[in-house]
């Protein structure tokens, strides 16, 4: 690729869920693959996440939830991005997310949902091929 811009990613934990092993492993894998990665830490509201994403001028937001609150919190992030005219940011999600919820999340604007067992290389490839 001739594109030299470094991809910037915000890894975020929306909601009250404290499980961030996956979020941290992915943050590190993305960083090791040459991206610039910011991790929000726990308990972020969708508002805080969107604000951080815009302030940090990221290309990608990676949302991680294992508590089951994804159907409410993921679409809320997309909604706020649209309100702020920032829908060009690619939003991906991961965590314990039942298959049957995935079509709904994609329809809401989540580009891809990565469930347990996904190799980090697959996520890296997805980001690299989807960030313009």
């Amino acid at each position: 690729m001739s594109c030299t811009k470094t991809i910037r990613v915000l890894i975020a934990k929306p909601g009250l869920d404290g499980h961030d092993r996956g979020a941290k492993v992915i943050a590190r894998a993305l960083r090791d693959s040459g991206m610039e990665v910011i991790y929000t830490g726990l308990r972020q509201t969708p508002e805080q996440i969107v604000e951080a994403a815009i302030q940090e001028d990221v290309d990608v937001i990676g949302l991680s939830i294992l508590s089951g609150a994804h159907n409410f919190l993921f679409p809320r992030v997309i909604e706020l991005l649209k309100e702020k005219n920032a829908q060009d940011i690619l939003v991906i999600g991961g965590g314990v997310i039942p298959d049957e919820d995935i079509p709904g999340l994609k329809a809401a604007g989540i580009a891809e949902v990565f469930t347990p067992g996904t190799p980090t290389s697959k996520i890296i490839d997805f980001i690299k091929s989807h960030v313009k």
């Binding site: 909601g15 009250l16 869920d17 404290g18 509201t45 508590s67 089951g68």
Partner: peptide
């Protein structure tokens, strides 16, 4: 559930989507 574990009532704004989940 997480709101209980973090000391929020079910009607707290941060509880939205989390009530009764885990």
């Amino acid at each position: 559930d997480l709101p209980t574990q973090i000391g929020y009532d079910s009607d707290h704004p941060l509880s939205k989507g989390e009530v009764g989940k885990v």
